[in-house]
């Protein structure tokens, strides 16, 4: 479907195109079943950032508030990239492994069940 506009051939540019982010791209990150964090976080990151940098430098700042964060065994954690199972390569850049502008990355730690075991 498309919008009914009074202007013929109504065309606009998307406001959040990657070139508007000064060399960064937006990446959303969520820790599934840990709703202490009310919503996924949005980061503006260089596409050349490695997955290791994302995991070890970016993610801990906000997610580290959770008492279970220090207990995460990253070897066992599983990931979803844009809703599809994903095995990150720590040494590759985000861009090189398909983490694109406005991609959603979710990690799951089934052995950590959240505060009081209630997914919080």
């Amino acid at each position: 479907m498309s919008v009914r506009a009074i202007t013929p051939d109504y065309k606009v540019q998307a406001r959040d195109r990657v070139e508007n982010f000064h060399g960064n791209q937006i990446v959303y990150v969520a820790w599934d079943r840990h709703l202490m964090f009310c919503a996924p976080f949005a980061y503006a990151l260089p596409p050349t950032m490695t997955f290791a940098e994302l995991r070890d430098q970016v993610i801990p700042e906000a997610f580290g508030l959770h008492e279970e964060f220090a207990k995460i065994n990253w070897e066992k954690a599983t990931w979803l990239l844009d809703n599809q199972p994903f095995t990150p390569d720590l040494n590759q850049s985000l861009q090189a492994q398909g983490v694109g502008h406005k991609s959603v990355l979710r990690f799951q730690t089934p052995e950590l069940t959240g505060f009081q075991g209630k997914a919080v």
Partner: peptide
């Protein structure tokens, strides 16, 4: 969104606007 994408691709999303400077 799917009914009128031309409209909502213009959403002024505060978080993205902060990141756009």
């Amino acid at each position: 969104f799917d009914e009128e994408p031309e409209k909502y691709v213009q959403s002024w999303l505060p978080v993205h606007q902060i990141y756009q400077g």
